[in-house]
Nucleic acid binder design. Sequence first.
DNA 1: TTCACCTGTCAGCTTGACCTTACAGGTGAA
DNA 2: TTCACCTGTAAGGTCAAGCTGACAGGTGAA
Lengths: 109, 109
Amino acid sequence: MTSEELLTVLAALGHPLRLQIIAALAAERVHVSELARRVGVSRPLLYMHLERLEKAGLVEGHLELSHDGKSMKYIELKPFQLTLTVPTILAALQADRESEQPSSGERSD
Amino acid sequence: MTSEELLTVLAALGHPLRLQIIAALAAERVHVSELARRVGVSRPLLYMHLERLEKAGLVEGHLELSHDGKSMKYIELKPFQLTLTVPTILAALQADRESEQPSSGERSD
DNA sequence: TTCACCTGTCAGCTTGACCTTACAGGTGAA
DNA sequence: TTCACCTGTAAGGTCAAGCTGACAGGTGAA
């Protein structure tokens, strides 16, 4: 995991509303409009937050047709596990260096 | 851990420069001016970032006198371990509810 | 005294995150 | 047709985070 990926996840989790969204999705997947009502925000705002969560790989959206033919976008939570310690941060920064010069200095001798 | 505490840590770690700062402090404590040079930023900017890290409890500063009598503020890294999963987020949000009404519903019977 | 270090803070700028309002377009049911 | 749902996005405003430059004040050494 590079530091960029790490920062994407940290930024995605670093907002109270997005924690609420994750909590609301923990038990079951919910479609966008219903999710907006449950967490008490406007739909456009929710879209913005979902975009961040999705980019971080924490949620996933699926557009489906409901039983009565209406288009519904269901959001589901992707299980994740991320341990933050000094070594994991060092590893992320090290991954940056290894991925930016993949053919020069990452020998393990 | 409440969600506010969690968010403070997430926000503190959610910046590339602050990850660099943590990496620079991983091996040894460093005084402010030297740290600024090592991570390549101005001292005032570093102070701002250190403030966030300190509020999150990730680093600690100690003002000391060097052997030649000059005032030096040494920054040291506090070891930490934070595991991010859906359950830990749910627990943080639950802690909010328990701490806002400490005398009504948190009975454990 | 001048220099080279050090700590600490403030005023002011820029930019992006966040949020709201409004719009365009689709469906099934009354 | 009108209503009540749904998806999706664009325009614009607000505000805090981030960053810079300048300042005030301390020390020991040359």
